[in-house]
Simulated scan of single mutants.
Amino acid sequence: MLRNIFALFFRSLRSDSRSLWVHLSWLFLLLVIYLALLSAQEQSRYTGAPGLEFFRIVIYLDLAFVTLLGVSFFSSAISEE
C-alpha cells in the first residue's frame, strides 16, 4: 500500500522539479523576502523594532504562498486519483 503512495509521490515530485512554474514561484518568493529585508533595514533608521515588521511581512507572505501552492498541489493530486 505504501509503495503505491510513494510511487505517486515521487512521480509528482519529479514532474514538479522539472516544471519552470515551480522554479519561478520560488524565485518570486525569494525576491519578495529580499525586498522585505531591504525595507526592514531602511526602517531601522526610524523605528526601534524593524525585525518585527520584517517578521510580519514574511509570515503573511508565507501564508499566501503556502495557500496558493497548497491549492495547486492538492488539485493536481485529486485529479491524479
Results as ranks from 00 to 15, higher is better:
Asn4Val: 00
Leu37His: 15
Phe55Ser: 10
Val66Ile: 15
Leu27Phe: 02
Phe55Leu: 12
Leu35Val: 09
Arg18Asn: 09
Ser19Lys: 06
Val32Asn: 00
Met1Ser: 07
Phe6Trp: 01
Leu20His: 11
Leu31Phe: 11
Arg11Thr: 09
Phe28Gln: 11
Phe55Ile: 10
Met1Tyr: 01
Phe74Arg: 08
Leu52Trp: 10
Leu38Pro: 08
Phe28Leu: 14
Gly70Lys: 00
His23Lys: 13
Tyr46Gln: 11
Ile59Glu: 05
Leu31Pro: 01
Glu42Leu: 11
Leu20Asn: 12
His23Trp: 09
Phe10Lys: 04
Ala49Arg: 14
Leu20Lys: 11
Glu80Val: 09
Glu53Gln: 12
Trp26Ile: 14
Ser19Gly: 03
Trp26Lys: 12
Ile5Val: 14
Arg14Tyr: 12
Leu63Asp: 04
Arg14Val: 03
Leu20Ser: 15
Leu38Phe: 10
Arg56Thr: 09
Leu2Trp: 02
Ser75Asp: 14
Arg14Phe: 05
Phe74Trp: 06
Arg56Glu: 06
Gly51Ser: 09
Trp26Arg: 15
Ile59His: 05
Ser79Leu: 15
Tyr34Cys: 09
Arg11Ile: 03
Val71Lys: 05
Leu38Lys: 13
Leu68Glu: 07
Leu52His: 07
Ile59Ser: 04
Ile59Asn: 03
Ile78Pro: 01
Leu52Asp: 07
Ser39Val: 08
Leu63Glu: 05
Ala77His: 06
Ile33Asn: 09
Ala36Asn: 05
Val71His: 07
Thr67Val: 12
Ile5Gly: 00
Arg3Pro: 02
Ile78Trp: 14
Ser75Arg: 15
Ile33Cys: 07
Gln43Arg: 10
Arg56Ile: 07
Leu61Asp: 01
Ala40Met: 01
Leu38Met: 13
Leu63His: 02
Leu69Lys: 04
Phe9Tyr: 07
Val32Arg: 01
Phe65Cys: 05
Ala40Gln: 00
